[in-house]
Every structure is written in structure tokens, then in C-alpha cells.
Amino acid sequence: MAQPSSVSVVDIINHNNNKFGRSKSGKMMKNKPRNFPRSGDKKGNKIDMRMKKLFRKRARDYNSSDDDDDDDEEHHEDKEQEQEEDDGIHATTPHHKDFESEANSEEDEEMGDDGSEDEDEDEEEDGDNDEVQPGITQFAQGSRAFKMAFMKITNKTVPDDLLGPVLSGHKKLIAEKLAEDEAERKVKGEAKKEKHLVGEKGHVKPANFLDSHEKFLLGVATKGVVKLFNAVNKAQNAQKGLNPSRFKDAKVLGKRRKDAFFTELRKKPSLATDALSKGTKSTGSEGDNGPAWAPLRDSYMLTSSKLKDWDKLPEKNAGDDMGDQMSRDSSSDED
């Protein structure tokens, strides 16, 4: 407790060195860096002592008015805090770590003082005025003063008002402004909500259970998948054991596919109507006329040759108008 406080005191003095001792600042500046790291330096020690005395004197002259205040303080308790706060600010000036105390005797005195300060408050002021110069406060004292001031502020009872402590002259104005803000915010919020609602239009969260419609859709999809898988199974079972990379097998495969294709072509019209009545399930697309295409037919719904033409022609002659195709197609359908 005592150690840091004394350091700060000496430190401030040192700090003042630079401030006040401009006349011989050149020399001081040179000395300073050497001084701090090596505390045992005799020359530095000597100069420091001398400088300390000088500055102490100067500080006394400089702060002579403060002295008067200090005297008053004893009588007026209220003012004491102000002064102490002021001192506290001085005490918090940055200090160097490395600096070690040279003036042992002085420190001892101060240490003794510190002890007395903590114990009784009455003598505190006197002791301070005697030993510690005005404008120089010990750390402990400063922090205590700050504590007092802070306590005072926090203990103050504030009128329980919506606006808090405000100057009475502006009270009405401020209240008005707040009310206005509130109204504005409300309007803004509503507008935002509305916009959000518009944006969310059509967005539905699905139910946690499968309702009948969903079940129906699931059934349809499942049926489709099963149909496809069975078709695949049928087709691929037939060619099982044949390796398409072998030339012989590839030839057999090709022949088989071609046959299947032609048979499908022949029986197509009936199949198409059949498919339409059954409802649809399509696994492939129209455009490929390769041999791989045919077996797909029995599951491939909605294929009338005209429709196929409709989609195929634009691919062949890319410049063709789609609309023309469409109209021709539909008209031929009418027939």
C-alpha cells in the first residue's frame, strides 16, 4: 500500500522535472534514461535529490492558492472532496515502473504518515498539509476520495420519473419528442409487418402429420417409382449376363433392342390411349429414337406422334417458330 503511493509521489516530482526544469532540460534529458534503469547510480541520485527539493519549492509557490483552500477545507467538509478529486487526478499521472526509490528517508516519513491517515481522519488533513505538497496526492488518498464522491452520487435519490433527471424547463419538450418517437416507431413497425406479410404470402408451414392429400400424393409417387423399377428390372434381367463391352454381346443387345423398338412402334396407338386412361407416369423423354428407347414405351404416357413431332421439330430446324408448331399441332389434334 505504502510502496506504490510513495513511488507515485516521487514519480510526480520526476515528472515535473521535465515540465519545469526547462532551463537545464538538456542535461536532465540525458541523465534520465540512465537514471531509471540503474537506481544505484550515485550521480543520478544526487541530482535527483537536488531537483526534488527545487521542484518541491516551485510547486509550493505555484500552488500557493491551493494552500488556502486546504485550510478552508478543514472547516468545510463538502469542499474537501473536490480538492481531493483534484489531487487524485494528479496522482494518477503515469509513472515509470523501473524507478526505485532513492530518497529513503523521505519515504519512511511518508510511510509513517500513511499509517496514521488510515486510522484517524481528523489528523489526516494536517498531516497532508505538512508532509505532502499540495497538488501531490497519495494514491490511497485519491482512491478514497473518489470512493466517497462516487458513493455520494450513487446514494442520491433521483425523482422517479419517466424522463429521469432533466432540467425542468425542457421537460415538456422532451416528453413531446419521446411520444412522437414512439408513435413514429409504431407506424414504422406496422408498415414493416405489413410488408413482411405481403412477402410471406402463399408461404405455408406443412402440418406435422400426413393428411389424406399428402398420403395420396405419396402413393402416386410410390406407384411411379415401383413402375419404373419394375420396368428397369424387366429390361435389365433380360440382358443379364451379356456384357455390352464385348462385341458379340453388344450385337445381340442391339438386335434385341431394335426388335423391341419395332414391336412397340407397331402396337403404339392402342397403348397410348391405354396410358392416357390410366393416368400418367413418365420416366423418359421424347427426343431419343435410339434402340434404348422402345421398352420405355409401356410406361411412357401421353405420347401421340403429333406431340412428339411438336417437340422434335424445333430441335431439328432451330430457326423454326415454336408457335407455328404449336398451332399446327393442336389443329391436327382437333381432326
Binding site: L228, T283, G284, A292, P295, L307, D311
Partner: peptide
């Protein structure tokens, strides 16, 4: 037709 063609065709073989 539009939706059939939007996905690649499947060759069941």
C-alpha cells in the same frame, strides 16, 4: 412435355 424435358431422360436398359 415441358417438365419431362427439364430432367435428363432415363434409359431403362
Amino acid at each position: 412435355i415441358m417438365f419431362q424435358n427439364i430432367f435428363p431422360a432415363i434409359d431403362i436398359n
